[in-house]
Write a protein that binds this DNA or RNA. Structure first.
Length: 855
RNA sequence: GCCCGGAUGGUGGAAUGGUAGACACAGGGGUUUCAAAAACCCCCGCCGCGAGGCGUGCGAGUUCGACUCUCGCUCCGGGCACCA
């Protein structure tokens, strides 16, 4: 009896699949298609366990659907542009392209070793001009359609490195390389007009029924539709800015207008800009605000601070009532009008601000159970429902009534109007970096911004670039940007900004349907393959990537690259959890990898020194904490099936999973056990198609077999891979005890096992199938069907409760009527004892479930 | 700070509002073996000799019945627009 050796067995079956091109996807209108896609990876150089989990799940779906008769498209590619390649160039002097393509080669080999049923002939890399050239064509069409424009916007500026920094490169307000305090700086940049589609992107979420509710909620909140009032406060005449008449603010709480205590504007508001040179102290304060960087998180968590401009505005309902105007660090120029009125009593931020600067806190909404005369606000703003107080003509109204009435009166007075607003901002795509898709426009002194003619695409990145100094290599390249204006022929300069990599990942799924087409998409292939039936990826992409892709598809539809049916490209979405591992820290505070540590009972020691190691909580695998396990080593030690099986077992796919060495060994033992069972029994089995014996042992085993088929099928369809795995463990235990069962039933059971395990452990499945004498491939074999006659139970056991506490268990026929079940329950001696002679007041019988006797 | 999740034995988890702990890992005991490994069998929520009682992060509530529904917390995680 040979031990199952994955290192020799697995490559053999991968070669067999390749030879028969089992996973090549060809358009075939006669067959139903199924497009399953996992989020493509960034080519960091090595796959990690998160990839293993993601791609194992996708492969389960792909192999399952293929076995169910679908024409499956399951492609793979590379999200290959991005900052790490430039960082490698800066730190190690390797060219981003060389670094990226070497990483792709290494990761492709690793993914191939996983035995994924991918169509590699469709592989794409976003850094390939074949791909990004088509993206440039899309960009030009979107530009022409008015979906792209330029405007001034803020970036994080490192004044020492003279470089734009990503948010993750700003640490505690300082540049990650230079350590210099970061400034906000304004640059003219390219934007996609995603906000113009806000309403459609919002309402279409209702139709995404096979997306997780949490993702739909997050997207709704992100878009943030609000109904409110845009209102112009009249400015009190002042010598500083005699020409400014009004201050326009946006509020979602017009009902609280009589609670207004101040107005606040962003440091980037035109009014603040106009005041800056005229007000001593303001430039310093504005600079302080701008040091906050561009992330919303920073703005919101920073301590509220303001600068009193000395200007005042009039209350719209009382010309004698004036409010101070502050410049404040928590007002976003990008939201609403960049100015607010503050009602301290009913907004926490406003309250914090008012307490700090001693501004009035006037409650104007009182909860219905409070006494309006004494209701006051302490350190917590009241944001709940209630009735208006201290608000003149609004007194006594509900919040909703008061909002409507305020808007009506403001409109009547000509000082504002109702307005729908969105939190969603336009998508800034300009990146001042080399390793991205060049934005295909030319700047001409005479003609302005001129699109690159399509026949000159792709605008290729130059190869000869240097990274020995900070800044954008494209900008300082001696010749690349220099060109002639396509319109007037005069000297001109190329755009040196490249696109956000989110653009690359916003349409790759469409490109996979025709990866070699001359045009970005091919209508026939799109019509057949789109949409993606099942998309699988990390929940960290719930908002940005998925929202941008939804927008981009709408833009592609408007420019004729996608049919209207593809504006929502992902019919079903599944977000999987992360892979975690416990963390280890040596006595001197160094993080240790799991390889450097020996686990012993409660504690752990560092193998090299024998010293005790502090075992930390299990958190997402990350290089910084060194709690990573290299899939390549796992595959080399145990085989791909073990890695796949373990990643699918135990934890529900949407939840985080913890990698443990013991778990991996358990998975390896299981695979050996299955092989041993089949290998030991195979020679004695009758050939395929032998008739079943008419005896109890045959019936019992066949019942177990068909129940396993039904259960595994339902579990895979329901994305409960951990439960499918548990069913297969269960079925394995049945097989282990069925050694003397009649041959035909045993063959059916073993063959069924091979077919059911194939989506999870495809190599093992093929090996079992072949050992059972089959000359075909499991990869080409249809999924087994459960015989309903065999999955029915002949007797069920149900619990009997007395006053909600379980007291007994009775066996009844599955179709027994309620009266019979009730009688059987009351006749049970344990039930009688629990009743203690008391007469049942009520008996609840839930058919097939439970009996509850209430006394 | 704001938005979205999650919490069940020693561990990962299972459970259309209906027998809490399927299945697995770890642990314990046994069989086999010169021995070890492997394999196989049994036990395994907590307290209790037992009868029984208590148990799904905490506190309330709805229900004949709550891990599941509602409200209020705690802790942990994801996202916050230039990481991908």
């Amino acid at each position: 009896m040979a031990r199952y050796d994955p290192q020799t067995v697995e490559p053999r079956w991968r070669a067999a699949w390749d030879e028969k091109a089992c996973f090549r996807a060809e358009r075939d209108p006669a067959r139903p298609k199924y497009y399953v896609l996992e989020m493509f990876p960034y080519p960091s150089g090595r796959i990690h366990m998160g990839h293993v989990r993601n791609y194992a799940m996708g492969d389960v779906v792909a192999r399952f659907k293929r076995a169910r008769g679908f024409n499956v498209l399951h492609p793979m590619g590379w999200d290959a542009f991005g900052m790490p390649a430039e960082n490698a160039a800066i730190e190690r002097g390797v060219h981003p392209a060389k670094w990226t393509y070497e990483n792709i080669a290494a990761m492709r080999a690793q993914l191939q070793a996983m035995g994924l049923s991918l169509d590699w002939s469709r592989e794409i890399a976003t850094c390939d001009p074949e791909y990004y050239g088509r993206q440039q064509a899309l960009f030009l069409d979107m530009l022409e359609a008015g979906l792209v424009y330029r405007k001034a916007s803020m970036v994080n500026w490192d004044p020492v490195d003279q470089t734009v920094l990503a948010n993750e490169q700003v640490i505690d307000g300082k540049g990650w390389r230079s350590g210099a305090p970061v400034e906000r700086r304004e640059l003219t940049q390219w934007f996609f007009r995603i906000s113009a589609m806000a309403d459609d992107l919002l309402s279409a979420i209702d139709g995404l029924e096979r997306w997780p509710d949490k993702v739909r909620t997050m997207q709704r909140n992100w878009i943030g539709r609000s109904e409110g009032l845009q209102l112009r406060f009249e400015m009190v005449a002042n010598a500083l800015l005699p020409d400014w008449r009004d201050l326009e603010v946006y509020t979602t709480r017009p009902d609280t207008l009589f609670g207004a205590g101040f107005c606040a504007i962003s440091a980037d508001h035109p009014l603040a800009r106009a005041l800056e040179p005229k007000l001593p102290g303001l430039p310093e304060f504005a600079a302080e605000c701008r040091r906050l960087g561009t992330s919303e998180e920073e703005m919101e968590t920073a301590e509220k601070a303001g600068f009193d401009t000395g200007l005042r505005v009039r209350h719209p309902f009382d010309p004698d009532w004036t409010l101070p105007v502050y410049v404040a660090n928590f007002i976003l120029m990008d939201y609403g009008t960049g100015a607010i009125f503050g009602c301290a009593a009913h907004d926490q931020r406003d309250l914090d601000f008012a307490r700090k600067y001693d501004l009035p806190v006037i409650p104007v909404v009182a909860p219905t159970d409070a006494d309006p005369a004494t209701f006051a606000v302490g350190d917590e703003a009241y944001v709940g429902p209630g009735r208006l107080i201290n608000s003149r003509f609004l007194d006594g109204m509900t919040v909703e009534e008061a909002k409507a009435e305020t808007i009506r009166r403001i409109a009547e007075a000509g000082r504002g109007e109702a307005r729908v607003n969105y939190r969603l901002r336009d998508w800034g795509v300009s990146r001042q970096r080399y390793w991205g898709c060049p934005i295909p426009v030319i700047h001409c002194r005479e003609c302005g911004v001129v699109p690159v003619p399509k026949d000159q695409l792709p605008v290729r990145l130059p190869d000869d670039v240097t990274f020995d100094q900070p800044g954008n290599p494209l900008e300082r390249h001696p010749t690349w940007a220099r060109c002639l204006c396509p319109r007037c022929g005069g000297p001109a300069r190329r755009e040196t900004d490249t696109m956000d990599t989110f653009a690359d990942s916003s349409w790759y799924f469409a490109r996979f349907t025709a990866p070699h087409a001359e045009t970005p998409t091919s209508a026939e292939d799109i019509a057949y393959w789109m949409n993606v039936d099942q998309y699988i990826g990390g929940v960290e992409h719930a908002i940005l990537h998925l929202l941008y892709a939804r927008f981009w598809c709408r833009a592609m539809a408007r420019t004729g690259h996608l049919p209207p049916s593809a504006v929502e490209p992902f019919d079903a979405l599944f977000t999987q959890g992360m892979v975690c591992h416990e963390t280890y820290r040596s006595a001197d505070g160094r993080w240790l990898t799991p390889d450097e540590v020996e686990r012993s009972g409660e504690g752990a020691v560092e193998t090299a020194t024998g010293r005790a190691v502090e075992v930390g909580p299990s958190v997402k695998m990350s290089k910084s904490k060194k709690n990573v396990v290299d899939p390549e080593r796992i595959i080399a030690t145990y085989g791909a099936d073990v890695a796949r099986w373990f990643m699918l077992s135990d934890s529900p796919p949407e939840r985080d999973v913890e990698w443990t060495a013991a778990g991996a060994e358990g998975a390896a033992r299981h695979i050996q056990r299955v092989w041993r069972l089949v290998d030991g029994a195979a020679d004695a089995l009758p050939g395929p198609g032998a008739p079943f014996a008419d005896d109890a042992a045959t019936l019992a085993l066949r019942r177990a077999t068909h129940r396993a088929i039904a259960a595994v099928t339902a579990d895979i369809e329901g994305f409960a891979f951990n439960k499918a795995v548990a069913r297969l463990y269960d079925f394995t235990n049945t097989l282990a005890r069925a050694g003397d069962a009649p041959g035909a039933a045993l063959r059916e059971a073993f063959e069924t096992y091979a077919l059911l395990t194939a989506p999870m452990t495809p190599h093992l499945a093929e090996a079992l199938w072949a050992r059972l004498g089959r000359a075909t491939l499991v990869a080409e074999t249809p999924w087994p069907a459960a015989d309903p006659e065999l999955t029915k139970a002949d007797e069920i056991r149900i619990a009997v409760q007395v006053n909600g506490k379980r007291r007994a268990e009775i066996a009844v026929a599955p179709d027994a009527d309620n009266a019979a079940v009730e009688a059987a329950a009351l006749a049970d001696p344990d039930v009688a004892r629990a009743l203690g002679g008391a007469a049942p007041r009520k008996v609840i019988v839930v058919p097939g479930r439970i009996v509850n006797v209430v006394v």
